[in-house]
Simulated assay, not measured.
Amino acid sequence: MKYSWIEVTQEEHVAMVALNRTNHLNALSFDFAKEINDVFTELGKTDEVWVIILKSNARIFCSGLDLKDALSQGLIGNTKQMLNFPILAHNLFACCNVIEECKKPVIAAVHGMCVGGGLDIISACDFRLCTQDATFSLREARLGIVADMGSLQRLPYIIGQASTRHMAYTGRFFTAQEAERMGLVLSVHADQEALIAAAKKLAEEIKESAPLAVQNTKEILNFSRTASIQDGITLSTHKNMLLLKSRDCTESMTAFMEKRKPVYRGE
């Protein structure tokens, strides 16, 4: 499928999703957000894709919400329209949810500034890597509003309450080194080439595991954030009742007995 502002390539079970609204520094317009929804919905259903890498083709990762687009929709300053904001701006909120709910692990490769809505997007990803020049800002408080696309809900699970409040209350830019210390990113890399190489290496490591097991593990981890331990264990047990019948599980047992590397098929 062709997209106006996103490039998608696929090779050896890894999909590369490049945000390509370069003239607007990947600012999130309503239509751009809809494309993000469409891309991750489609990739989630594509059996040949086991891991997704999300990157930017612009000189930064994302400049946040496209305020001009929001103004053109008549949302800002219009009380009647604002009451309908959750409906009219559905895709803005959904574009983060669809990444989090995508069955496939998503690796965010961040360079340059990652502001507001961009931080919302990467907080919905499974992993985040960045370049040395990357900076991160939960900017909304400096605009007189609160973050409402999920970062306030997701970040505490990633970096803890104290660091989330630090980012949210100050609205300042945090360096790549600060982001690494707080656990927002797994690792920091010298440049974009090294960043993408590291993202691909992580994807290859994930591919060493059975894809159905990885996908169901992601579902259980997401579920368990708000469920009781017992409910999480129950879901895990139910998943294994199915996975034990999968071809990949049989292959793993056979490969172990034959002392060779398993060849998974996602079946």
Rank of each mutant, 00 (worst) to 15 (best):
S4Q: 14
V106G: 06
S228W: 13
M1R: 14
M113C: 00
S163Q: 15
P211G: 04
P86Q: 04
G183N: 10
T164S: 01
S123G: 01
T217Q: 14
N84G: 10
N84P: 13
R247A: 02
I87M: 05
L212Y: 02
I229K: 14
L152I: 07
G112I: 01
A194P: 12
L143N: 11
L244E: 12
K68S: 06
Q153R: 15
E205W: 06
P262A: 00
I206K: 03
S228I: 06
E205T: 13
Q230V: 09
A109D: 08
Y169S: 05
D191G: 03
A108S: 07
T175C: 01
F30E: 15
G74C: 03
G144L: 06
Q177G: 07
K2C: 07
L202I: 04
D248E: 01
E140W: 05
Q230E: 15
V98T: 12
V98C: 04
N84V: 07
E267M: 00
L221F: 08
V39Q: 04
S163L: 05
R165Q: 13
S236Y: 12
D133E: 13
K218N: 07
N37C: 15
A89F: 10
E204C: 06
V14W: 02
R225L: 05
E140C: 10
S72G: 14
V188W: 01
L221Q: 14
H24S: 13
M182E: 04
I196Q: 02
L155C: 04
H24L: 15
F223I: 06
Q230Y: 10
T22F: 02
I6M: 03
M241L: 11
D191L: 00
Q177P: 11
E267D: 10
I107R: 09
L54R: 05
A199L: 02
V214D: 05
I36F: 00
G118A: 04
I233T: 11
Q10R: 11
D126R: 04
K55F: 00
S63M: 09
L88T: 14
V146C: 07
M241E: 13
G160K: 08
E267T: 03
I53H: 00
L243R: 10
A94P: 15
V188Q: 00
A94F: 10
T22H: 03
G74E: 06
S252P: 14
L243H: 07
T175R: 02
E42H: 10
D31P: 13
L19F: 03
E140A: 10
F256Y: 14
A168D: 13
E208T: 12
L243W: 02
S151W: 02
F40N: 08
I206A: 03
L19I: 03
C96A: 09
M82E: 12
H238E: 13
V49N: 11
Q10L: 08
I145R: 10
G150T: 10
I60R: 03
G171Q: 08
A108I: 06
P262F: 00
E100R: 15
A70P: 14
V49T: 14
Q73G: 09
L235E: 05
S72K: 13
F30T: 15
L202Q: 04
K218P: 13
A141W: 06
E267W: 00
A15I: 05
T164Y: 01
L155T: 04
T217M: 12
I122H: 02
E48P: 08
R154C: 00
L186H: 09
A194T: 07
T79C: 05
F32E: 06
E219A: 08
